[in-house]
Amino acid sequence: MKPRDAEQIGLNLRPETMSEVTPTPESHGPEPLVAIRGVSKVYERGRQRIEVLHHVDLDIPEGDFLALMGPSGSGKSTLLNMIAGLDLPTEGSLSVAGHRIDRMSSTELARWRAANVGFVFQFYNLLPALSAQKNVELPLLLTRLSGARRRRNAAIALDLVGLADRASHKPNELSGGQQQRVAIARAIVSDPTLLVCDEPTGDLDRHSAEEVLTLLQRLNREYGKTMIMVTHDPKAAEFARRVLHLDKGILVEQADIGA
């Protein structure tokens, strides 16, 4: 991966350590990239009222790599989905880069997601009939880029995750770890503001998990991508800059791991 190529898909090279660039949540620097204020999420099932998130306050500065941990059912995915503009809070406000995403219509949210969020899922969620290259090109279909430009950018992103030689392979011809790297290439190809990962290593063996986590860490450290990752695995969380714990819908503990 040559730095110049990465620049061409918009990934800015930042060799300097993130601590110089990014204020810690407690610092009184500029507006955080993600500002979550008093967010609650309630599901009503007949008379039953399930409060999945309870008045969550959270700031995520630009360039952060946040790991969200917690027991199953604690609301991690729910919170992540809200930050990513996939779900709306019952209460509270959510702003990303100054945009109140909790006030957007579903069409506005779709456009916003296309421009600002990259997704990595536990089960990769690639389209099985498309080659790695075409899967990576998918988000670019929503841009105004020309066909040649789309192919080029997808190739650059694939190169960045170390799979340039697998561009023509279908997902079922790739290992789990390779599929997840294709998914990461798809997530970064449109140079999103935020990268959200829901248990990205949940389905991978230790070795592939480490490859994927190293890649995510590199994207954060070298390219300044802001990342939020949900994980069950404390080893995975070690790759993040800081770890937050959710328990029954409440953020209970913050720990700075440092870079």
């Binding site: 069409t107 456009r111 969620n125 998918l138």
Partner: peptide, 15 residues
């Protein structure tokens, strides 16, 4: 359904 959900996640509108 999962694939369509992924498309929507990526920013494809309902329409």
């Amino acid at each position: 359904i999962p694939e369509l959900a992924v498309l929507k996640t990526l920013g494809f509108t309902n329409r």
